[in-house]
Design a protein around this nucleic acid. Structure first.
Lengths: 248, 248
DNA sequence: AAGTGGTCTAGACCACTTC
DNA sequence: AAGTGGTCTAGACCACTTC
């Protein structure tokens, strides 16, 4: 952990435990420099992190303030609460398994397909693969507490990811990529849509044909800039939602 | 424009015009310092911007690389291309009007409702309003080239936004807020869902009842940390999509 | 006029990759 | 061992807000 991460975590704690409340002004940048014994740029990076998390907003000449969010006010966070099981965060892409392993929810997968294929041309292009190159192809239905949430349709280039086996799919593929292969995932480019369920999808997801699904088309990149996965996932509309925060 | 913005724009230009290609390594940070005559931190901030835009990825000890995206490869960008009219970017929230005024598309609005009301309790809480406080309420159908894309349902606190009139809704509300009132918009918190169209929405949007809509529930904040709008918009699934980029 | 956040310098030191 | 990006210092100067 770097100094700026430590400082961000510390201030985040003060906001979450209520010692800093909605609308409060943080100590000035110079005061925070003294308080933590660091330089101005280090404090600025910490505040940048808090801003990205949606916790604070800075106003030049005036100060940095705790944002008046429903969370900071103690308002229950979701108007549509009830049957929504999956609330993914668009900013931290750590995969389905990791995001829910922490909570008390049971994560499971039905592997509908796992094979090595020559992918369709348009997908091969997105993965920067030659026309004859092979890729893994898998289709998985992911469940939380046994209720199906999403069907994921994924292609990964064979050359970048040697040795992927069926048992890796039971758990988290991302763990295999990072821990076993030592790859560093850097970013995901996503397109989000609302689409009607096909009959087949409706059966997999235990919902109605034509019912709204939240589609996420995604290309994942490693830190050399190469794509390592192309994926289209379709989430049951009434069981999943995506949260994100945009700084202007 | 700050120095780091100038540098980011310059390198972005090199990537977009093809002088830097997918997979290429950028000059090292030290080389870029010499090239632009700036300090290391300034170059780092420029590269951070390019990373947020999804253009480059840095690898400690190795270098910074142009990402192998479909755009950098010259692949047409959308598999579902054809009838999708609205491709919003989740990272830059400048409002519907601004995002399309630049292009050759005609933006228009049907104002279905515009009034001053006491908002429902749950919405008042999200806007940090007292139970008796008033808010503007408007419902607008936004069209591109006369085709309805989205119905927006928005509440804005009266006290924060004096003098809002019907004619502001014909164009861009955001322009009124920033240019006339001098407010600085800082961030948006969003929840994205797929929902079925009600009969009323289907009529407004010229689509079928029950057809998938992409819902965006949004709270907007100004730079003092106060919420200035609560909005639920519902986009026709087959005519809109949301793009975003996530850095891990 | 005084106080605030934002940018920037000219370095230093470190973690990691490459050879 | 040499080269790369990432963090950090101790300041300086500036834009903007507050009084």
């Amino acid at each position: 952990m770097s100094k700026y991460e430590d400082i961000a975590t510390d201030i985040q704690g003060s906001i979450l435990d209520g010692s800093l409340k909605a609308g409060d002004r943080l100590p000035t940048v110079v005061e925070l420099c003294d308080l933590y014994g660091v330089s101005k740029i280090t404090v600025r990076k910490a505040i940048d992190i808090l801003a990205e998390q949606g916790l604070v907003s800075s106003r030049r000449g005036s100060g940095t303030y705790v944002k008046t969010t429903p969370e900071a006010l103690g308002v229950e966070s979701d108007l549509h609460a009830g049957d929504v099981l999956y609330t993914g965060r668009s900013d931290r892409s750590v995969g389905f398994t990791n995001e829910y392993a922490l909570q008390d929810k049971k994560v499971s997968s039905d592997i509908i397909e796992f094979s090595i294929v020559v992918p369709p041309e348009q997908i091969a292009q997105r993965l920067d693969m030659g026309p004859d190159d092979f890729a893994y192809h898998d289709i998985r239905v992911r469940r939380l507490d046994d209720i199906p949430i999403v069907v994921e349709n994924t292609y990964m280039p064979l050359e970048l990811i040697p040795g992927l086996k069926r048992h890796h799919l039971e758990g988290s593929i991302y763990r295999y990529l990072t821990q076993d292969l030592g790859l560093h995932l850097s970013s995901f480019h996503r397109i989000i849509r609302a689409v009607p369920a096909t009959l087949e999808e409706a059966q997999w997801l235990e919902t109605e044909e034509g019912s709204p699904l939240l589609e996420i088309e995604q290309i994942g990149f490693v830190d050399t800039g190469l794509p390592f996965e192309y994926s289209i996932s379709r989430n049951v509309g009434s069981r999943a939602e995506l949260h994100n925060i945009n700084i202007t």
